[in-house]
């Protein structure tokens, strides 16, 4: 039976099971500790109807978009430079992987002291999370690129910028998208952690202030909103990726 079902039907069943589990937990621990799925959705709807909530969303989004743009362009540019210059890449790679694996939260006070409380600290913190994975993926993509592409661009005497845009970029695009997917979610995480720790506005701030006044339905509504946002963006990028690889 199950073998005949399309793949998405099984996934749908798993999601339903998760929803049932959520409802069951809600009944088990009570509404004051865990809001039910319907409560969460209706709370989210009423939050989205209020204008103030959108101010917080736009604050988070502004920080996120700026941080992601910097990570994206900075990471790809840095990755291309390190990928093309072998020595620089070899020297930098272990340093970057070490930086990548440290819990960056411990450095957040440093960011706050440098940039002050406000949106620039959040952006900087988001970039700290997102820049390195995008750099590493782009760098490795170039290193694994078939040498014939580069030789061809040399034979055709393309300028460095011409070969970057017309040869290297298209060749490494699929790998870069994997890096960008990772960078996207880490940047979002960085911005949110930044807001949760020290901020006056934004979704992360709403989350921590909701803990302090014990509004479990608000917490869950925001968590749901962010999960849906992140998963949707990720799915879109994965679909784009699949289209590219089947080209």
């Amino acid at each position: 039976m199950t073998a005949l079902m399309p793949r998405s039907a099984g996934t749908f069943l798993v999601l339903l099971a998760l929803l049932a589990l959520w409802q069951g937990l809600h009944l088990l621990v009570g509404a004051s500790s865990l809001a039910s799925p319907t409560q969460t959705v209706s709370k989210l709807a009423s939050l989205l109807a209020a204008g103030e909530f959108w101010l917080n969303i736009s604050e988070t989004m502004r920080a996120f978009v700026a941080a992601f743009a910097i990570s994206l362009f900075g990471g790809i540019a840095l990755g291309i430079v390190l990928g093309v210059r072998k020595l620089a890449g070899n020297v930098a790679e272990p340093i970057l992987t070490t930086l990548y694996s440290i819990p960056k939260v411990v450095l957040y006070p440093l960011v706050l002291l440098c940039f002050g409380l406000g949106i620039s600290a959040k952006i900087a913190f988001g970039v700290m999370h997102g820049l390195i994975p995008i750099t590493l993926f782009s760098m490795n993509a170039i290193r694994q690129m078939k040498p014939v592409y580069r030789r061809t661009s040399q034979v055709m005497r393309l300028s460095p910028s011409q070969s970057a845009f017309t040869v290297i970029m298209p060749a490494i695009l699929p790998e870069i998208i994997s890096g960008v997917r990772l960078g996207f979610s880490l940047t979002l995480l960085g911005v949110l952690i930044g807001e949760m720790f020290a901020s006056q506005r934004g979704l992360g701030f709403l989350l921590t202030s909701a803990i302090n006044i014990g509004q479990i339905d608000t917490i869950m509504a925001i968590a749901l909103l962010l999960t849906v946002f992140a998963v949707t963006c990720n799915a879109l990028m994965m679909r784009f990726d699949r289209r590219l690889t089947h080209r």
Binding site: L189, L192, A223, L226, C233
Partner: peptide, 10 residues
């Protein structure tokens, strides 16, 4: 892709 830390308050 999910920023797991938003579940910490829960």
């Amino acid at each position: 892709a999910v920023p797991t830390f938003v579940f910490y308050p829960i």
